[in-house]
Design a protein around this nucleic acid. Structure first.
Lengths: 191, 191
DNA sequence: TAAAAATACTCCATAGGTATTTTAT
DNA sequence: ATAAAATACCTATGGAGTATTTTTA
């Protein structure tokens, strides 16, 4: 019997059953699972996460039941990971890090970082007025990442209409703008 | 005003507030969010996910509210992503893929792949008896990945005691084994 | 036997459903 | 005018807590 063959056939695709199992995973359980792994003790993990130990126990047991897997060996002094548990721990850490990234990135947006805003302006506006106007605009709209391109006044409006940029700066009037910021002879429209 | 400076200060660490926001993210919302992005239409997304449209709407709105971010522009014909939404979409996809990996890997374990099992055996056992014994053992215990090492009989027992391996094969008797599989003159103990 | 985990049971918050209203083109 | 999204309201499920029992070394 060739021992090597035992290691074969380990690459598989998600079956329908596995796809259904996917939605039995939830982030709270993963967080608690990681806490239990860190503490090697369900009670301490529960304290650390500010939740009743019984709730953690139920989550761990339900999770094991749902996947038909034993994640921990229950010892008198705490919990020890099984190989399956080790495997889960790795993926759980990665997943939770991803979720943290989501929170961080969305928080940035909520604080006014609205991503890449494309801005068109005619040259004289850039040279003469943009410095003060921009600082006022940013004061009113929060932090932005700006991609500024110089265009003749006529192309500014057109560029906005075509979706080439979100903010246009020129000397002509314009309707259907969502908000405006005006100075002596320059008006900033944002769509 | 140096425009370049606007692009500075974009690397940040998670604040306590962001850490708290982390637990407002849940996988169901991410799944529904991705569905809405795919369909560009909340109603269709709800159908596809087998849930009421109102529930999806509420989740999306609550999520936007929690993070103080607008993810969609609401159009008469459907929903269009904002830049913040685009950013979330990327992370959401990655996260959901990770979760799928979790389900797949745990399913493998539940089907008997118990990860890497270390096994010690003395040479004569390997040469003479392992072939048939192993096939019977695997038949009884399900699929395993095996790391086999040759050891003199004495070191086999010792290696097991020290946790160097989970399975030992030799010709002596042993107690406190969890399960045994015996043939003519070879016994497999597993701990 | 002592520390820790699991269970039994209760209660409440939340998430989903139905029906309706509001919005946008 | 119409399709789609948001809201209001109700209900029920499930998740958390307290108290207790069971397990493990």
């Amino acid at each position: 019997m060739p021992l090597a063959s035992i290691d074969d056939d380990l690459q598989r695709n998600p079956t329908p059953a596995e796809a259904a199992l996917t939605r039995r995973v939830d982030l709270t359980t993963l967080r608690l699972f990681v806490a239990v792994c860190d503490e090697q003790n369900l009670t301490r993990a529960a304290q650390r996460e500010g939740i009743a130990a019984s709730a953690v126990s139920k989550r761990m047991n339900d999770f094991e039941l749902a996947f038909g897997v034993t994640l921990f060996k229950r010892l008198a002094k705490g919990m020890a990971l099984t190989p399956a548990g080790e495997a889960l721990l790795h993926h759980a850490r990665v997943t939770l890090l991803n979720v943290e990234k989501i929170a961080v990135e969305l928080s940035e947006y909520s604080q006014g970082v609205r991503g890449h805003v494309r801005m068109l302006a005619n040259l004289s506006a850039i040279v003469q007025y943009l410095p003060e106007d921009l600082s006022a605009f940013f004061g009113a709209h929060g932090l932005l990442r700006v991609d500024l391109q110089e265009r003749p006044s006529g192309q500014v409006v057109r560029g906005i209409e075509e979706g080439a940029a979100e903010i246009g700066i020129c000397s002509a009037e314009a309707d259907n703008a969502r908000s405006t910021f005006s100075t002596t002879d320059t008006t900033i429209w944002s769509w």
